[in-house]
């Protein structure tokens, strides 16, 4: 027990670095999730409405966005994407280090992923409801804003939850190349210095964060689901 206490609770890496690391991770995840939803939601809506037979069918737009932008971004492994984006990140936020910089590559990786989830959630809305909206004289914008998105809300919130959980996973990786956060803590101390306690505690904290996100996501989904 004494041995355990010595190494597990008196480790300065945990005492001094754990809280800042949690904070950095939350900043990274929060910021990139926010940007992902702000850009990914409209992108998903555009993917949905421009598809064949959609409200605003446009083969050109759909091809460029779906087959080029989304599919190519999604094909690049995140480990490569985050390195490749360093010059862009430097241009955008002035540095490639820290949680703010890491959020750039996290958001760029997550936007197409989330946009696909949005597209899928919108497809779940029965076409009859859109017919009804149309027949009552809705404009396209009204159909999207007043019918399509509210009707898809449970699926959209579930999509946000999945995306945030995925971003948490990627944020550990982003931590390695300068993003900071729990990923870097686990790597620097847990892996490189063989401090298993840091590794275990970090993993536990990440598991708790993921659970919290999933539970609140599920709770919100239930709240808006009147089906």
């Amino acid at each position: 027990m004494i041995l355990l206490e010595d190494t597990w609770f008196n480790n300065p890496a945990l005492q001094k670095a754990l809280l800042p690391a949690v904070y950095e991770t939350l900043i990274m995840v929060g910021l990139s999730s926010l940007v992902t939803v702000i850009i990914g939601l409209p992108l998903g809506v555009v993917l949905y409405v421009t598809q064949k037979g959609g409200l605003g069918e446009s083969r050109g737009v759909n091809f460029v966005l779906s087959s080029i932008v989304v599919n190519i971004t999604r094909s690049i492994p995140y480990a490569i994407l985050m390195v490749a984006l360093i010059p862009f990140t430097r241009w955008l936020v002035g540095t490639s280090l820290g949680p703010l910089a890491a959020s750039v590559s996290l958001a760029i990786a997550a936007i197409p992923f989330f946009a696909r989830l949005v597209e899928t959630a919108l497809r779940e809305v029965s076409p009859g409801k859109l017919d009804a909206a149309h027949a009552m004289g809705s404009t396209r914008m009204q159909s999207v804003a007043k019918v399509l998105i509210p009707e898809a809300m449970p699926g959209l919130i579930a999509g946000v939850t999945t995306t945030v959980v995925t971003i948490i996973g990627y944020s550990a990786m982003a931590g390695l190349v300068g993003g900071g956060g729990l990923g870097r803590l686990a790597y620097n101390y847990g892996y490189q210095r063989y401090q298993s306690d840091v590794m275990v505690i970090t993993v536990i904290v990440i598991v708790i964060i993921v659970q919290a996100v999933q539970w609140s996501g599920d709770w919100f989904t239930r709240r808006v689901d009147h089906r």
Partner: peptide, 16 residues
């Protein structure tokens, strides 16, 4: 279109 009221087989109400 508002001069025609359309009633569908499956009502097509908005669940939300």
């Amino acid at each position: 279109r508002r001069r025609i009221g359309l009633v569908f087989q499956q009502a097509n109400l908005f669940d939300s």
